[in-house]
Nucleic acid binder design. Structure first.
Lengths: 221, 221
DNA sequence: ATTTAGATACCCATTTATGGGTATACGTGT
DNA sequence: ACACGTATACCCATAAATGGGTATCTAAAT
């Protein structure tokens, strides 16, 4: 009923890649179209237009570029991949950061074998997939606030803020006026006002309150 | 090893309350200390200092005051209860709203029987509890953004705001200017500005951004 | 009956923010 | 060599917000 699912695997341990290939080869629907041992290789592989993959299985700890940097790179380029994080980290902060960066699945290495095929099929199908331990820590993290809300899909694809813009934005949320921000950052008030204008435009909000609300919604503060 | 867990049940269907009592009575650790058929009754029951419960099982659809309003009332009063929502709604928006209002558990009526005892014990113990279907929709809702983050627990309203002040505050967080707020509420701009002054003073913040941040931190929005 | 809290509205003046430009300087990558 | 993004800074004008008052009306509480 549908084409094969092509998968690219990235992990700095060759043996783990071989394991994943072995597992995935047991399923006729899925095929490995490439693999990488460093983040740099991943980026380069996808830069080549001849290479294509429906799903990227991505380790976090890798030489040259780590998993975070790889996703940031793709986000910046506006490249939208179905990414499954395969990591031994089960720290909530890391999982959240990866979700913010747009990953669609997250499985831990402990029980990768039993999950990998299902995970690949799920994310290739536009769904999300988490291994049970990740599910648990995600649920635990749900408190009385800041519940996940289905936003504009892939809203990370919009205008990326520069470091300085984020710096200004953070100070705005701390109730600083332009004068005070200029003081703290040692720049002219006019410059701060330039940043305010850029922020308003990039984030498409009406005023400083909108900036603050954006910052909150997007975990910038 | 520990005292009994006292539970108050609120649902407008008497038969459902009876069912819950029957289920809960099978467990020696838990005891029903009261029940209510409307939201108003719940509020009144807890207003009486002689009444106490460790856990409140709360329906959403109820006459006089619904579940949302009951939780809002307790939040406003600074009353902190371990609340389990028992509802037939499994809409993500509703679950999220209830979590924002501070509920500690959420189970659907489909499979209440098999979950109710575990849920009560969990929330009485300070943990969270969700039935499997709720777990699933919560996980589904986790997108690339707005992941749950553990905040300051129970930071309720200090200086009580009036209804009108809260109304204005909410509009401020929606990026409305004073002119627009005056328009929406059909009052003079000068009146809106009076509210802004009062809000700034009561909440002890410097500007509108401070108001917005306060509103977010305190679940007003 | 009198106080109190809340909603409403205006006066004044000053400070900030917004919206439209333009412009220079620096570094990266093609 | 040149384009591009980023950080910086200024011009202009208008809109909005802030900070200090005072004041009236109503409903609820004492």
């Amino acid at each position: 009923m549908k084409d094969k699912i092509y998968v690219h695997v990235a992990d700095d341990h060759k043996i783990l890649i071989e394991g994943i290939i072995a597992v995935i080869n047991t399923d006729k629907e899925i095929e490995i179209s490439g693999y990488s041992l460093t983040g740099k290789e991943v980026v380069d592989w996808f830069d080549n237009k001849n290479n294509k993959a429906d799903v990227l299985i991505l380790d976090i700890t890798m030489p040259v570029l780590d998993g975070f940097e790889v996703l940031k790179h793709f986000n910046k380029k506006g490249i939208f991949l179905n990414v499954i994080i395969l990591s031994s980290y089960d720290d909530i902060k890391i999982v959240q950061e990866m979700l913010k960066l747009g990953c669609k699945g997250y499985i831990t290495k402990n029980n990768a074998g039993e999950h990998i095929v299902d995970a690949v099929k799920a994310v290739a199908n536009g769904e999300q997939y988490f291994s049970n331990d990740i599910k648990n820590i995600l649920l635990k993290s749900i408190t009385s606030k800041n519940i996940a809300v289905g936003d504009t899909p892939n809203s990370f694809l919009i205008d990326t803020l520069t470091e300085r813009e984020i710096e200004v934005l953070k100070l705005i949320t701390k109730e600083f006026s332009s004068t005070e921000i200029a003081d703290v950052l040692n720049i002219a008030i006019s410059t701060v006002e330039t940043y305010r204008k850029k922020l308003l435009k990039k984030l498409n909000v009406k005023n400083s309150v909108g900036l603050a609300m954006y910052a909150v919604k997007n975990n910038i503060v």
